[in-house]
Design a protein around this nucleic acid. Structure first.
Lengths: 329, 329
DNA sequence: TTCAGGCATGACACCGGTGGCAAACACCGG
DNA sequence: CCGGTGTTTGCCACCGGTGTCATGCCTGAA
C-alpha cells in the first residue's frame, strides 16, 4: 500500500505536489504532472479515502439503513437511493437494522460516526430524540416511518388513506365481514393503516369486531395461527386486508385458495402472477428512495434552504383479482 | 461533536486517560473512571470511528458487494453475512455493483479504501487481477461467481450439476424439446448452467438445436421476445429451463399459463405459491452468505491458516408442479 | 536595474484516537 | 533509608492527505 509520501519520494517532489496532481490542481507544471502520474502508476498508488475523510471531517458517501434488505419494499428504496447517488458519483453504504429496536441506535451511530454525507433511514424504534446531536452535522432523512421525538425530513406514504382505500374497496365488492392482518402495532405505519381500516368500517356502518383484528403477525407460525382463528371465527370473515407486503406474502402461503377476498398494502414481485392476482395498495418505493436521496443532496448543497420536512406520498390501488372473490355469507 | 480532548480538558486529565476509560483499560483508578464517564455523558461524547480506523489502519466493519439487492438471491446472501457479523458485533456495509462491469472496480476500490476488515463480493466483471494488491491487507471472499485472474476464497454453487439436474428432470418427465432461457453468457454461472443443460441433452441423445437457446434475456422486453420466438419455433419446445431467478420471474409474467413445463435455477419468494408452483434448483443463499462471512472472520482471526479456497456447494432440486406440464407434441 | 505580481513548489500543522515509553508515586522487604 | 516493583497517568509521535502560508523563480513594466 503505497502512500502519497512514497510516491513523492520516488518522484523527487513533495507530498503536496502529489496531492495536487491527484486533485487536478492547475498549479502544476505539465511535465511534473506527467512524471508524478507515471510514478503513481508504477507504485499502484491508491489514495487512502479514510485519511481524506478524516482530514476534512466528512465522507462523500451516504448511508441507508432499513429494517431488512430481503423485504422487496426496502430493497427497492435502497436501490433507488443508490441509483441517484451513483449518478452523482457518490457511494452508498447500506445497513440492516434487523428487528430489535434496541439495536437501532448502535447501528445508526456506528454509521453516523463514519461521518457520512447524509443518512436515509427507515426506522424500527420508537425513540429518535438521541439523533438531535447529529442533525446539524449530518442531513437525516426518514422514509416509510416518521421519527419519534425528533423533527427531521420525512417521506412517508399516506398509510391511513391506503388502509381506508383497501377496506373501502372490499366493502364496495359487497364484503361486510372484513378481517385485518398486520404486524407490530407500535409502528406508526401499521397503526395508521389500521386507523384507515376502522374509518372505512365505521363509515359503512359495519359493526366493529375486534375478533377480526390480527396484529403482530410477523412469521409463518403466527400467520397460520391467525388464518386458522379467522376461519374458525363464529361469524367468519369473507375478506382480509393485509397491512403489509410481508403479511400478504405469508397469507398467500397460509390461506386456502379462493377462500377469502384479499387486498394487500404494498405491491411486491409476483403479486400479479399468483392466482388470483393480488389487489394491492401501491406504495412506489422507488419514488420514496429517489425523493429521500434527492433531499439528502439538497441539504448537503444548500444547508440553510428551507424545505418542507413532512412529505406524505399518495398511494394508489392496483385492482387485480383477489378482491373479487365472492362475499359468500 | 465533542472530541476526546474536550472531555479530557473538562475532566482535568489527559486525552490518553479518556481513551483508556473508553477502552476499559484496567489501569485506571475507579474514581478517575467514574469522573471521566460522567463528563463523557455530559458532553454526549461519541468517539470518531474514523480516527480510530485511520490510526490502526483497519476498520472492524466488513463489506458486502452484490449486483443488486433487489434480487432476492443476493439480498439473502447479504442478510446472512449481516446476521453472522452482527452476532460478532461487527457492522456490515452493503453496496450495489449495478449492471455495468466497468464500474465494479471503482465501487470495490471505494469500499476497500475504507480499510474494511474483509469483503464479500458477488462479482459482475470478468477481470479481478487488479485486486491482487488488496489481498494481503484485506480478506476477499467471492460468492456466487469465481474471480477471474485471481486466486481467492470462493463459495459457488455447482452450477453445471444444477443445470444438468434441471434439464435431466424435464427429460425424465418426457420432454425432448427443451428450451434454455438465461442471462449474460459471459458470466461463469450462466455458462456453467448452460454446460449442464448441454450435458443432459447430449446424454439423452437429443439432437442439439441452437434455436432453443435464448441467452442475454435480462429485462421484460427481451423475455417477451424470447417467449414469442420459442412459441413460434417451427418445432416448438414443450419445456423450458430458466437459468436464473430473475429470468424465472420474468418468464412467469410472459409465459401463457400451462403452455410449457418449467424448471428454474434458484428459488425465490412466491415460487411455491404461483400456479403451477415452480420446480426449482435450490441454491441456499443463506448458507453461502454464512460460509462467506465465516471465512472472512477465519481469515481475520488466523491470517496464515491454510484453508480450501474453492468451495462448491451442492444444489438440490425442489420438485413442485411446473415440471409436470404435459409434454404435448 | 528594480520591484511588483504571478506561478510552481515545499514546509508544516492539523484532523482525533492510541501505542510506546517515561514519569510520578506508593508500597514492600531488607 | 534504599533499591526494586507495580500502578496510575501523561507526553509525544504517528496514521496519510491537505489547507495555509512561505519560498523562490521568472516575467515585464517603470
Amino acid at each position: 500500500m503505497a502512500t502519497m509520501r512514497d510516491v513523492a519520494a520516488r518522484a523527487g517532489v513533495s507530498a503536496k505536489t502529489v496531492s495536487r496532481v491527484f486533485n487536478d490542481d492547475p498549479h502544476v507544471l505539465p511535465e511534473t504532472r506527467l512524471h508524478v502520474e507515471q510514478i503513481m502508476r508504477d507504485l499502484n498508488y491508491v489514495p487512502n479515502v479514510l485519511a481524506t475523510t478524516f482530514r476534512n471531517g466528512r465522507s462523500s458517501a451516504i448511508g441507508v439503513a432499513v429494517p431488512d434488505v430481503v423485504d422487496p419494499f426496502f430493497a427497492a428504496i435502497a436501490r433507488a437511493v443508490d441509483d441517484l447517488a451513483r449518478s452523482r458519483g457518490v457511494a452508498t453504504l447500506l445497513t440492516n437494522l434487523g428487528d430489535e429496536p434496541g439495536r437501532e441506535r448502535d447501528i445508526l451511530e456506528s454509521l453516523l460516526s463514519r461521518r457520512l454525507a447524509g443518512l436515509v433511514v427507515a426506522p424500527i424504534s420508537i425513540d429518535h430524540s438521541w439523533l438531535k446531536r447529529w442533525q446539524d452535522s449530518t442531513p437525516l432523512v426518514f422514509v416509510d416511518r416518521a421519527p419519534v421525538g425528533l423533527s427531521a425530513d420525512t417521506f412517508t406514504d399516506n398509510d391511513e388513506v391506503g388502509g381506508y382505500q383497501a377496506t373501502r374497496h372490499l366493502i364496495e365488492h359487497g364484503h361486510r365481514r372484513i378481517a385485518y392482518v398486520g404486524g407490530d402495532l407500535r409502528l406508526s405505519t401499521e397503526l395508521n393503516r389500521l386507523a384507515g381500516y376502522w374509518r372505512a368500517i365505521d363509515e359503512a356502518g359495519i359493526e366493529k369486531d375486534d375478533g377480526l383484528i390480527k396484529a403482530y403477525v410477523d412469521n409463518r407460525a403466527s400467520t397460520e395461527d391467525a388464518v386458522t382463528r379467522l376461519l374458525d371465527h363464529p361469524w367468519r370473515p369473507t375478506a382480509v386486508f393485509s397491512s403489509n407486503a410481508r403479511c400478504s406474502m405469508m397469507l398467500l402461503h397460509a390461506l386456502p385458495a379462493d377462500q377469502l377476498a384479499v387486498v394487500g398494502f404494498g405491491d411486491f414481485p409476483m403479486a400479479d402472477v399468483v392466482r388470483p392476482a393480488l389487489t394491492v395498495i401501491d406504495q412506489d418505493p422507488n419514488e420514496i428512495g429517489r425523493l429521500a436521496a434527492q433531499r439528502v443532496f439538497d441539504r448537503v448543497d444548500h444547508p440553510k434552504r428551507r424545505l418542507r420536512k413532512t412529505n406524505i406520498l399518495d398511494v394508489t390501488l392496483i385492482e387485480r383479482e383477489s378482491c373479487k372473490v365472492a362475499a359468500r355469507s
